[in-house]
Design a binder for these strands. Structure first.
Lengths: 254, 254
DNA sequence: CTCAATTTGTTCGTATGTATG
DNA sequence: ACATACATACGAACAAATTGA
């Protein structure tokens, strides 16, 4: 038995809260229903008439939404029969964010990020709030874009303490910094904290990740301090939100 | 010294990827700059002319964006002087998602969620994928909305195994289920896992949380199994994404 | 096979919103 | 502020394909 539809009657006011075109809003909801398999692959979705009623919009508006999803190969229509979900199922949510030191280092080991020119503007100290740690005087700024199947999915903006960078600069330019740092005997890591929140793509991020302006993103700030509470590694990582998930074992400490 | 502007030249194509009205896209970026304090409270923002150039849009479009933010009391204008960021600073990101059992139970203890009528449609087994655990035959469905300062910020959809619910039904209707469950001597918790991803509000969620359709949300699925690997607690929790953050101590296991 | 019901596809007219110069 | 062009959204009507009685 499939999960039944949850009532959505009389929700007209929700639309008023946004001036985003209606058909885009409707399409977004439908797209999510497909991706979450609420509408399973191959399955027939409700008729245009039913969708009109559910979303409380005109027929043309539903049509425009359906047309969008057709161009994305998520739906196909058969006149006189109905509209169906495509069969091919792309795997999403494949990127699992690490929640501990070991898995974080492991997940980065095989990575070959594409270093890109860092805007000189960013070659300054990262913005640190009190509890993040003291500022190392000088930082090196490294920036890379992560790809999967030729598609960009993440941007790493890393401020690395100059003193650490100088220990083996070539290494730091060739592969992810964190595993290197973990193996440096001179460096004593005292704390490593990660803070995650949801944001929207600004023009620069949108361009690098090839997504629309304002598309939701997942922002990770990872800060590592050394024995003297100096922040030696400050990474701001931005992912497309649609490929990320976080799995947490709530009992790992027991 | 403030963090300098990162180059945003020649990013026109980012706009093409979205059919969201330009002024909304521009407003979204500006709103984020204010919220992240990239534009600090009280500070003067660039002139309309500079913004025209940066965003590559017509003057009226920038004006529309500024007007939006003025209505939100995030900006104010002084003719002949410029446009400024408002001084009052609303605290966001106040909700820290728990990443371990103890803090999860603690964070819920004082909570008084508002139970709402559960659509009968949902009174079925939750959708479980293989590794989530076996299905307990019957579940009770409980639904509540969480408020802060009179504003809804989260929806809890909980499937609780009937056998567990029957141990003290009144309790489960009066306060959060998880602390109760933790204190029940009859229940042996074997695993507790949480999976977090980003989604968009469907019509129902948009209505309950008073947000626009498609607004990004944080979805948490929390599954607790008993000694027999039966999923006794399956919670789907949906938060507004703009109040949530996750702090992880990457070294907690060391 | 025909008929009616269903469902997608198309068109018209109108009103409003968006964006430019 | 104005004129212009295009996109969005509605309601309604009609055409075309499919299905089953």
């Amino acid at each position: 038995m499939r999960a039944p539809m949850i009532s959505t009657a009389k929700l007209l006011k929700a639309y008023d809260r946004s001036r985003v075109p209606l058909y885009l809003q409707v399409a977004a909801v439908m797209r999510q229903r497909i991706e979450t398999r609420y509408w399973a692959p191959g399955e027939q979705i409700p008729t245009l008439e039913q969708l009109e009623v559910e979303f409380q919009v005109a027929r043309i508006t539903v049509r425009q939404a359906v047309d969008m999803l057709r161009k994305e190969d998520l739906l196909y229509c058969r006149q006189g029969r109905g509209t169906f979900v495509a069969n091919k199922t792309k795997d999403k949510r494949w990127l699992k964010l690490a929640t501990d030191w070991q898995s974080l280092a492991d997940s980065l080991k095989g990575n070959v990020p594409k270093l890109i020119a860092a805007p000189d503007a960013a070659a300054v100290s990262p913005m640190l709030s009190g509890e993040d740690g003291k500022s190392s005087g000088a930082y090196v700024f490294l920036r890379s874009v992560q790809f999967k199947d030729g598609e960009p999915y993440g941007i790493v903006n890393l401020h690395l303490a100059q003193s650490v960078y100088d220990l083996c600069p070539k290494e730091f330019r060739a592969r992810p910094a964190l595993p290197i740092l973990a193996d440096l005997p001179q460096v004593r890591v005292k704390s490593a904290r990660q803070s995650i929140s949801v944001g929207g793509a600004d023009p620069e991020v949108a361009d690098l990740l090839k997504i629309a302006l304002g598309t939701p993103t997942v922002k990770c700030r990872c800060i590592i301090t050394d024995a003297g509470d100096v922040a030696i590694y400050v990474a701001d990582i931005i992912y497309r939100s649609d490929c990320v998930r976080i799995d947490i074992d709530l009992l790992s400490a027991r």
